[in-house]
Amino acid sequence: MPVLTVPTPARTGASATVIRAVRAWQLPPQPVGLPHGLPEPLAAAASDPPAGPGWAEHRTRFAIELVGDGVSGWQAPVGETVAQIIADDLAAGLIGHDAAAPRRLAYRKKTGRHRSGAHARLASSAVELACWDLASRAAGVSVTGLLGGAVRRTVPAYASALGLDPSHSEAQEAAAWITKAGFWGQKWPLTKQLILAGPGAVAKALTPLREAAGEGRFMVDGLGRCRLDEAMRLLPVLADLQVAFAEELVPPGSWSWHRLRAAGAGVPLAAGENAVDEAEQVRLLTGGGVDVWQIDPGWSGGLARSLHTTELAADLGMATFPHGDRLPAALALAGACCRDKIPAVEWHLTLEPLRQQIFTNPVQGEGGRLAVRSAPGLTEVPRLPEKTAVLEVTGP
């Protein structure tokens, strides 16, 4: 990524939250394989190899720094494409912006022509979260405090078992471990092999896991892998399993999605994490096709947008379960909301410990609960192996 430098203007009476420079620092790639110290029941049932560490955005990663007067705001990790969009389209327009004014962020100048789509939204979300981090550190107040104050100090987490194989012979022991660990619930993937094997195979694989979950909630994630006919045949099985929700059996908002929703069968349908653009979020929320709302502050436009859609979902009778890709931001959001609005956040069993390795003090749970950060800053400052930023934009 090329280094871009613009002369810095004279500074006259501005607050510490005014952005003076934008920097990007390259981080080491996410480690391949399972995280060290993963409990044996989980490691035994893990997919081989785990998919996540092989993704391009995990191999080349950056930390974004927004530099104020004597204080910086951070967001990490972001992938190479997202970092490049920030450098090309957003960085110059951020200079002079007051990070303590999140509603004015959308009106800053952009230098590229593309405003929508997943990567553009990821870039704008990363910048928005870094602004919250900068404003929080400058004010000496937690991000949850800036959102209106903490409603609770800890938040329940549900265990995402997407890195585990539900058909594995050790999967039941893994499900029992999750229950014993105190998680609010557990979510298992519907692998493509399982979907192709048919409803009988799904019931055979998931019934022991449901039994091991006991009183804990049990969810499934189709990852958008089902055809409509496959999803329709799965509904009675999922109803018998009394799933708390089924996530993205088919692509949300599609024709197939609405057919599936019309079929009912008492299976709550969850979506939202991939609804990156505002119009798509509104369509899903108000279109009558979603029972459970999922939002990711790192994908949806940032914290302010996530809080807005969480409140809208609550008004429409839906609970929100923030997606786990930006766990610190999800925790700040959940800390500012009551349990009826956000009952739990997602903890990815095999992926989150790898994400947290860039921080000196990683987020860790206890008894199935995660602490809401009370110190200034959205996250810990990431560990930077390089002494020189690969991008720096200053002025005009």
Rank of each mutant, 00 (worst) to 15 (best):
G335R: 01
P2I: 13
G198D: 11
N361P: 07
P385M: 05
P35F: 02
G145W: 03
V372A: 10
D229Q: 13
A123D: 11
E311T: 13
V82I: 07
A304L: 15
A371G: 10
V345K: 06
P189H: 10
D98M: 10
D240E: 13
S167R: 11
L269I: 11
W293C: 12
T8D: 15
V381S: 08
M318W: 00
I64Y: 03
L241I: 06
T388E: 15
L223K: 04
V67N: 01
L285K: 03
K110V: 08
D221R: 00
T360A: 15
I19W: 05
V82Q: 04
Q356T: 00
L260K: 02
D277W: 12
V290M: 12
W184R: 12
T144M: 08
A135V: 02
I64S: 03
P41A: 09
G367Y: 08
L105R: 08
L351I: 05
S142E: 07
R121Y: 10
R61Y: 03
R283P: 00
C131V: 03
R383A: 13
P29I: 03
P49I: 00
Q30D: 04
R369N: 14
V18F: 09
S15G: 15
R61Q: 08
V220Y: 02
P385F: 05
A21W: 05
R104G: 15
S167K: 00
E248Y: 09
A244V: 03
P9D: 14
K109D: 15
E215K: 09
S15F: 07
S47L: 11
E170D: 15
A175T: 02
A150I: 01
L241Q: 05
T81H: 04
K187C: 04
R305C: 12
P35H: 02
R326S: 15
H323R: 02
L94S: 11
P29R: 00
T154N: 06
V155G: 06
P328E: 04
V292C: 10
R113A: 14
V372N: 08
D240M: 03
G368I: 07
E280H: 09
G112F: 02
P156Y: 07
H119R: 07
S72K: 01
I64G: 10
H323F: 07
A43T: 01
I86T: 02
I358A: 03
A319I: 02
L209P: 00
V155H: 03
P39C: 02
T309A: 08
L162C: 08
E230M: 03
L235N: 01
G272S: 04
L162V: 08
L349K: 00
P2W: 14
A139Y: 06
R113N: 09
M1T: 14
G198M: 11
P376E: 13
P322C: 10
G287V: 06
S306D: 14
A135D: 07
P9E: 14
P28D: 15
G368F: 11
A51H: 01
R259F: 06
L234Q: 07
F321Q: 09
L391C: 12
D325V: 13
P2D: 15
T81A: 15
P31V: 05
M232Q: 13
R217A: 10
I19Y: 06
A118R: 12
M232G: 04
